[in-house]
Design a protein around this nucleic acid. Structure first.
Length: 286
DNA sequence: GTCCAGGACCTAG
DNA sequence: CTAGGTCATGGA
């Protein structure tokens, strides 16, 4: 029986922290409600005792896409117990227990993070919103969503059919040619995002990094947030600062040193540990 | 006005 | 391997 709502029983899950931790860029909070779009589904999520309630603008025959996105079946405790038992990680977990990694659609994730370089999260949201409003499809016209919500994420084919000037008009600046190039590579079949699922981490990372504007950090974000490569450990300015301050407080460590440390210290779910450090650092400054 | 943002890339030492 | 410049744009 198709339904427009569902209740997912989950525990150890902080929905607000998760949707506001810089993994995704088009979920909007309105009181206890979170509005967002997955594929062509317009959704409203709320967290209640014992789980997450979802309401869709139209009937849904199969909610698997939402369980996948939220990673509702992941037992957080099993992840946390693999973290290194040191003071920084204990503090980070204590500060934001319930923070989760989502599992995004790879193209939206890749495109969003191509647009993320040297941009504050609030600005990434604005750019992605403009992109969806101008090139996505309007879903559920009877709803009065705003800020990019209520639109599908534009396909690679759609982006490939635009030009650099139209993309720059979405305020993405020098990132426009990179996004356009990535869309073309995918639309022309020269890069297959589905095929990446079958590769190992190193090969998948190298494949993504063939794209202009995609270096190690952005590739790691896509591998972690879009594919579930849990060993991926994106190192941005916040994480670099976190590693320096929390693990090498005495002497300054080089970028290479920090990178090598990150690759060996955090275990099989290093990407999860990274997200805890990232959110912990951001929270401390707000 | 200045600094910086979930970087990548290129060049010079 | 490291340091520095460049690329747009706007928040703090």
């Amino acid at each position: 029986m198709a339904a427009a709502e569902i209740f997912l029983p989950v525990s150890d899950y902080d929905l607000a922290a998760t949707l506001d931790s810089g993994q995704v860029f088009r979920w909007r909070q309105n009181g206890e409600y979170w509005h967002g779009v997955l594929g062509r589904h317009c959704l409203t999520l709320t967290q209640t005792d014992g789980g997450i309630h979802a309401r869709a603008a139209a009937r849904v025959s199969d909610w698997q896409f939402l369980k996948e996105f939220l990673q509702a079946d992941v037992v957080l405790a099993d992840i946390l117990k693999t973290f290194p038992d040191d003071e920084p990680m204990r503090a980070a977990v204590a500060a934001c227990r319930g923070l989760r990694l989502l599992r995004q659609e790879p193209w939206e994730c890749l495109a969003s993070f191509i647009l993320s370089s040297t941009k504050q999260i609030v600005q990434i949201r604005q750019i992605v919103s403009l992109l969806c409003e101008r090139f996505g499809e309007r879903l559920a016209p009877h709803l009065n969503f705003s800020n990019g919500i209520g639109y599908s994420f534009p396909t690679p084919e759609k982006i490939a059919s635009t030009d650099e000037a139209q993309l720059r008009a979405c305020k993405m600046g020098f990132r426009a040619p990179s996004l356009l190039n990535a869309a073309r590579q995918i639309a022309e079949g020269k890069l297959d995002l589905e095929k990446i699922r079958a590769l190992d981490y190193a090969a998948a990372r190298a494949e993504l990094m063939t794209l202009r504007g995609v270096g190690g950090k952005i590739a790691d974000c896509v591998l972690l947030f879009g594919y579930g490569f849990d060993t991926a450990f994106p190192v941005d300015v916040w994480i670099e600062r976190a590693l320096q301050e929390l693990y090498f407080p005495k002497r300054r460590a080089s970028e290479q040193r920090l990178r090598k440390f990150a690759d060996t210290h955090f275990g099989p779910h290093a990407g999860y540990a990274q997200q805890y450090l990232f959110h912990y650092m951001r929270m401390r400054l707000k």
